[in-house]
Amino acid sequence: MTSTGSVAASWLRPIPTATPARLARAGHLGYADRRLGELVQGRPPGVTGSQWSTAGRAGLDLVVCAADTGRPRFAVRFAAPTPDGSPARRAERLTDAVCDAVGLPLLRVESPTLGGEQVRRFVEYVLDARAYAAGTGPDGGETVGFRDIVGRLPDGRRGPVNDLGAVARADAVQAYVAGRLADPIVRGLHVRWTGGPAEGWSWVEVRPGRCRVERVRLTSRGFSCGVDPGRLAEDLAATALGEKLRDPAADEASLVDRTELREQVRRLADRRESFDGGFAFDHLCVD
């Protein structure tokens, strides 16, 4: 993770270590349901009073702090997608600006499906990934990335055990065997918008020619855990898809025609100049 350095030391208020924590992992404690204003000692320079009033009220699902000092290291927010130009999107930009000003890395996951318990699991995942990355590299002797570690999967097969979507992929196979899906394969793609978030898509064919689709956007300002943000966004989309596959009340009307989905992928591919790293999924555009 990128160090917050002296900026964070100047502006971020420690959370008392006696405060009940939502999670404890890898030398960190996670505190749930905090407001950004609780963490910042005064209005940072370059932020107007109106901007600070709005950003200070921003809710953070988990604030992850050093276990020994209570100093915030990063924050996580899960939210439903908001349209460009909306008041909610403007508030997010103000929150980003304040987090940048005080040196607080912010991870934002935009999904209509994910939230609740997935927040804690996601934080545990990125903490484990960061701890693994800190022990690897030229001096650590390991070359396999955290996301690429192979082991035994939930369905007994061997594969990448640190794929957040592994359970969903196993559930899809079981649902296919039980006759609830037309195809057992969870497919997906990911891109990274230049200067913006990573975006992951995941889908499975529920009825012949009809797909359930989930999309997740991941903004990871000032934070790295050693897993490519695009792959992480796609894995989160697969996780969201798994939640919908387990939901008996999932709306049949929300299924997307396979032909329309292919057209959406093609339209995304047409914007490849806007992606950091290009577009690696042209095979999904073919009939």
Rank of each mutant, 00 (worst) to 15 (best):
D84S: 15
A101H: 01
D84E: 15
L29R: 14
R34N: 00
W11C: 06
S50Y: 08
C99L: 10
G85D: 07
L104T: 08
G49M: 09
P112K: 02
G46A: 08
A88K: 14
Y31L: 06
E92A: 14
H28R: 15
L60K: 02
W11H: 08
R43A: 05
P44S: 03
R93M: 14
A67H: 03
A67K: 06
R77M: 09
V102G: 05
T54V: 15
P81T: 09
V102W: 00
D33N: 15
A88W: 13
D100K: 10
P20C: 11
P44K: 03
G85V: 08
Q51D: 14
T95K: 09
R93D: 12
T19V: 15
Q41W: 09
G37L: 11
P44I: 04
R77H: 13
L39F: 03
R43Q: 11
L94A: 05
V102T: 04
V40I: 12
Y31K: 03
L94M: 13
A58V: 10
T54N: 06
D68P: 06
T113W: 13
V64D: 07
D84V: 15
R34P: 07
D96E: 14
L23H: 02
R77G: 07
R34T: 06
A18Y: 09
R22C: 00
I15G: 04
T17E: 02
A26K: 12
L36Q: 03
R89D: 13
L39W: 04
T113L: 11
G70S: 04
G59P: 04
G115T: 06
A21E: 08
C65T: 13
S53R: 12
G103E: 06
A101F: 02
T95E: 11
R35K: 14
I15F: 03
D61K: 01
A79H: 13
L94T: 05
L107K: 01
R43F: 05
Y31H: 11
A26H: 12
T19Q: 05
